[in-house]
Amino acid sequence: MTSLTLELTAPPMPRIDLSALTPDRLAGRSADAIRRLPLWVGNEEATLGDLFTVTAGDTDDILIRCDSDRLDGIGTGMSRGAIRVEGRAGAYLGRQQRGGTISVSGDTGPFAGSGMTGGGIEIGGNAGDFLGAAIPGERRGMRGGRIQVRGNAGDRIGDHQRRGLILIGGDAGDYCGSRLVAGTIVVLGRTGANLGFAMRRGTLLLTSQPRLPPTFNPNGTQEPGFLALLTRDLAGLGGPFGQLQARGTRVHRWLGDLGYGGQGEVLVWA
């Protein structure tokens, strides 16, 4: 069965909340019913059909074609199925996602994967700030699942992250892993200032030497066995993340943030 396809007809001026378009919430609806779904465009109510060309198909496999960064909340709370975005996505991509997969060929806005507890997000381009982070007012960010970014990611990756895995193929912005509670963030490119600021536990796994806050202590060279499990688990992934086994398990290790218990670790492949 072909995908349910939504093609944006014209880039909207205001931001559009697409959180209603998940496999869970569209299940059992006909293409006509989907076209009639209400959407807010600024302060005016419109229908989905006004903005998108809808091609009927499997509601568990949704394809969104758009070249706008104004479509927010794609895949919010989804628990199954797949959403593919050909183009860019706005803010809050996969917010509180519980399962299924979301893939975006281009860039995404801030707060992608915020509060997600399961499933996977793949971002082909760059991710905005606060990837997998908690939104203001929430105490915890990402709590499970896996986010892959082929390009770069912005500041505050994994802020308040509690569990789950974030993979960045390119560079990370400032405050990567700040206030990390637990979980793992892998950055294959360079990292910005104040990496791991106020992290309590969790792992930041890097390929290049970071600029650490002064509240991190060197722990020497270690060979943690879990790295073998992690890289083996990732070996099924395409691209750079599938090649990590070749790096081995020998890492330089720093512990911190000592102002917050110091149970977190920053690992840099030796």
């Binding site: 879990f226 499990l229 149970q263």
Partner: peptide
């Protein structure tokens, strides 16, 4: 000082 890791 134990650390939990969820992998796969």
């Amino acid at each position: 000082f134990q650390i939990a890791k969820r992998i796969g």
